[in-house]
């Protein structure tokens, strides 16, 4: 029974990890930017959900509707006004710029929200459902479903819409896309905006599950990074595969080796992937 419980825990957690990583993977895959501000976007999204619930009484489901457009605009402007200026420079420059932006955003959050840990407590609580002694918390199930829905929406957008095809085209061959009349700078901004919107939505969902503090941003960023390397860049399903693989390794590792070694094990896996299969489980060029 313990084995089944651990497996179910890992599946649910894996979808949460995918939710954390999907926006990061999009930006990395399309723009070739390692967006270090991603973790802080998630935390900001969590604060948005927390504030909307505690001061306006808005449930996190509505907060999702605010977070998505607000973060899209924020991300779009950030790319348009700042990142686009250095986008063609070596990767270290964009890395440094997002690092700096992350320092600013993170410290601004520490200043305004304090470093205290907060928790969004739904009233009434959502509780857990149990089937044959296997327990699954409802809020995690909802977050998992939302993560899958967001992933599917992104897939549809990239597959079916004109903007989506343009994003994929830019990723595949920037110069050819320019010749075909694609406005590359605006596509970059849209892709970054989408990445930010996904991070903001992830933050809203994580607010239901994890304590909220600016200090947690690095933990989210770390998970996003590992998930992307394991799952591979450039595919929506890669984030999902990477997330579930990571959660499984952590879950099984903490039961059989002890929780202190679960993290070690996940990083050992990361190194093995970097050496043996650098493109990840489902990685490919372009974004489909």
């Amino acid at each position: 029974m313990l084995a089944i419980q651990v497996l179910i825990n890992a599946l649910v957690l894996g979808c949460l990890y995918a939710c954390i990583a999907i926006g990061f993977s999009l930006v990395w895959g399309v723009l070739n930017v390692i967006n270090l501000i991603h973790g802080s976007f998630i935390v900001l999204g969590a604060y948005l959900a927390w504030g909307a619930y505690n001061s306006l009484g808005l449930s996190p489901w509505y907060a999702l509707l605010i977070a998505a457009p607000a973060f899209f605009v924020f991300g779009y402007l950030l790319q348009r006004l700042l990142l686009n200026r250095v986008i063609t420079a070596p990767v270290l420059v964009t890395l440094t710029l997002t690092f700096g932006l992350d320092l600013i955003l993170n410290n601004a959050m520490i200043y305004y929200f304090k470093a205290d840990y907060r928790k969004l407590i739904l009233n009434p609580p959502t509780g857990s459902i149990s089937i044959f002694d296997v327990v699954v918390p409802v809020d995690r199930l909802i977050a998992t479903a939302s993560a899958l829905a967001l992933t599917f929406l992104l897939y549809l957008l990239l597959r079916r819409s004109k903007v989506g095809r343009a994003i994929v085209a830019v990723r595949l061959d920037r110069d050819a896309a320019v010749l075909m009349g694609v406005d590359v700078k605006s596509i970059y901004a849209i892709a970054f905006g989408l990445g930010a919107a996904l991070a903001g939505c992830a933050g809203v969902l994580m607010a239901l599950i994890f304590p909220i503090s600016p200090l947690t941003s690095s933990a989210y960023l770390g998970k996003a990074f590992v998930v992307c390397v394991l799952g591979g860049l450039g595919s929506v399903s890669g984030a999902l595969a990477g997330g579930i693989l990571l959660a499984l390794v952590e879950g099984v590792g903490s039961v059989y080796l002890g929780p202190a070694h679960a993290v070690t094990l996940s990083f050992v896996l990361l190194i093995i992937f970097l050496v043996v299969r650098p493109q990840g489980l489902l990685g490919r060029k372009g974004f489909e």
């Binding site: 313990l2 419980q5 651990v6 690095s218 879950g251 039961v255 929780p259 679960a262 993290v263």
Partner: peptide, 20 residues
Amino acid sequence: FEKYAINTLDHSATLSQIKS
């Protein structure tokens, strides 16, 4: 008696084991 790593984001596997 076990230790968990600093910055652990999820304890579900550990807690399932303790519960058992």
